[in-house]
Amino acid sequence: MWNEESDWIGSFDALLARLAECSMCSRRSGERPGAAQMDVKILDVAAEGGYGRVFRCLDVHTGALVAMKQITMVRLSQGIPAQIIREVSLLRELHHANIVKLLRVGFTENRYVNLVFEHLDYDLHQFIVNRGYPKDATTVKSFMFQILSAVAYCHSRKVLHRDLKPSNVLINHSKRLIKLADFGLAREFADDFLYTEKLGTSWYRAPEILCHSRQYSTQVDLWSVGCIFAEMVIGQPLFQVINCRDELEGIFKLLGTPTEETWPGITKLMPNLHIYCSKFDPLGLETFVTDLEPSGLNLLSMMLCLDPSKRISAEASLKHAYFTDVNWI
């Protein structure tokens, strides 16, 4: 038995030695994998951010307009940023009419990662700011339905977006088509996961995250959708309108300071709540969101519910009375 084993080890060592021999040679330099032509012609810079730049480009094969997100690899000590890996891998799996399509991925030199997406005309933030926001109720309803469809799809695939805001909602002007973008903070979720609390843009961040909870789920996205909904109606971020020192105080001013009765578990989550801020009586959503039909206001209040366990889901939102006349979708 021993001889058999040592024979086997000997022959395997010989095999590894032969494998090692394969590398003994002179070399010539080659291209970096993926550094080959990205097959796009840059037209202009569409946007700039902390991550890098977005270029408006022309696909040299099809002649179609595309958007190229060029991300600077700052921390080369950790290779390709996990945020990019997360975004790319999730977009490879998510296929929905209201989610932006990732066309290809490439690399230039050792400093940039290029993500090529389908091109859309502008984002919802630009639409609200530059076009005097969607004044007609039909457009608001259409946009909301499409956003919720995309979010419901993500949640059904066990994906949290975690960074929903108007600048991450893209619009095709001619078709009035909405597409969710920027899945850099998105992640898969499970019942027993602890997540990071440092995410999302503060005006659209759910109260449980602002209260430093690390156990949250799909409800955080619904809060953000509620904030977007209100912003489409009033033309500016809801919690920017309320005069307060920070987002959490603004939320409590609008919806009332929570108690164990209104939000079970809040005292455990935020033991110093009574020290942190005074007890506010709710001002009510209708005070700020005036131009919204009653069913819309009802849906908004269900999205902007302090207690995450009572917050409406994306799936249920799509069946809400507010969308009964959506035969135009």
């Binding site: 040679c25 002179s26 070399r27 080659g30 291209e31 970096r32 994998p33 690399f107 030199e109």
Partner: peptide, 8 residues
């Protein structure tokens, strides 16, 4: 820098 080098 991630460049591949091939056998000569």
């Amino acid at each position: 820098n991630g460049s591949l080098s091939y056998p000569e």
